[in-house]
């Protein structure tokens, strides 16, 4: 008799089908345009463009998968890597909702909450962008007002300032070393900027895990987590 799949196993099966199908759809789009407009790609430009772009993007993509999947959960990962805007929208959204729900991210309830949160965020984003595109002409003077521009420019500092308070206050022992390291690196190295912060996320995550492991082995983190475990029981 065929063994019934668990919820998580089913998510992986459905996720793989959806992601490969969407990848096919995305690749079909330029092909359809070629047929409709009787055009062929500029092969020379395509190869040069891919050589300049693909190695870096794929390297970052691989690092992002390894770093973000354990945080996003299964359903959230399949969705996030198709809908995009992970670090500035989907991941903070899921983390915040999960934190308020009181569920642990590695529990089944946490997986469900994270999936719902990322799905809702994806749907709302699509709706807002559609409204934005429909109203692009009347909205452009408003959203491009020089007075409002600084607000949109500072979305990430505003987001991570608030999110930092939530997570750092609860894990301050873990947070000290990576924050100091990242501050030193970002202030001292001019090459680290908006374009390279994505690469620094796994660096910072690995460093934090390393420091936490040392602290945990030395018994510096055990007390709090033992308390948490007792509460759960």
């Amino acid at each position: 008799m065929k063994k019934e799949r668990t919820y998580l196993e089913q998510v992986h099966v459905d996720g793989a089908i959806w992601n490969y199908t969407m990848a096919g759809v995305f690749l079909l789009f330029p092909l359809i345009l070629c047929i409709l407009f009787n055009a062929v790609p500029d092969w020379n430009g395509l190869i040069k463009g891919l050589i300049a772009t693909l190695p870096m993007y794929w390297a970052v993509g691989i690092i992002e998968v390894i770093t973000y999947v354990p945080m996003l959960g299964a359903g959230g990962s399949y969705l996030s890597f198709v809908t995009g805007n992970i670090s500035n929208l989907k991941l903070p959204c899921a983390l915040e909702v999960l934190e308020n729900s009181g569920y642990k991210s590695n529990s089944e309830e946490g997986e469900i909450i994270s999936t719902i949160s990322i799905a809702v965020s994806s749907i709302v984003t699509v709706i807002i962008i559609v409204i934005g595109v429909i109203l692009l002409v009347p909205l452009e003077p408003v959203l491009n007002t020089p007075a409002l521009q600084p607000a949109f420019d500072q979305l990430l500092p505003a987001l991570f300032g608030a999110l930092g308070v939530v997570f750092i206050s609860k894990n301050w022992k873990i947070a000290i070393a990576p924050i100091i390291l990242m501050l030193i690196l970002f202030i001292a190295i001019p090459a680290l900027n908006s374009g390279t912060v994505g690469i620094m996320v796994p660096v910072s995550a690995l460093f934090t895990i390393g420091v936490s492991r040392i602290m945990y082995k030395k018994g510096l983190l055990a007390e709090k987590n033992n308390k948490e475990t007792k509460t759960e029981e």
Partner: peptide, 14 residues
């Protein structure tokens, strides 16, 4: 938690 803090630290550094 270290993964979360690592990500947040990178953006705070940024």
């Amino acid at each position: 938690n270290s993964l979360f803090i690592g990500m947040i630290s990178a953006f705070l550094g940024f």
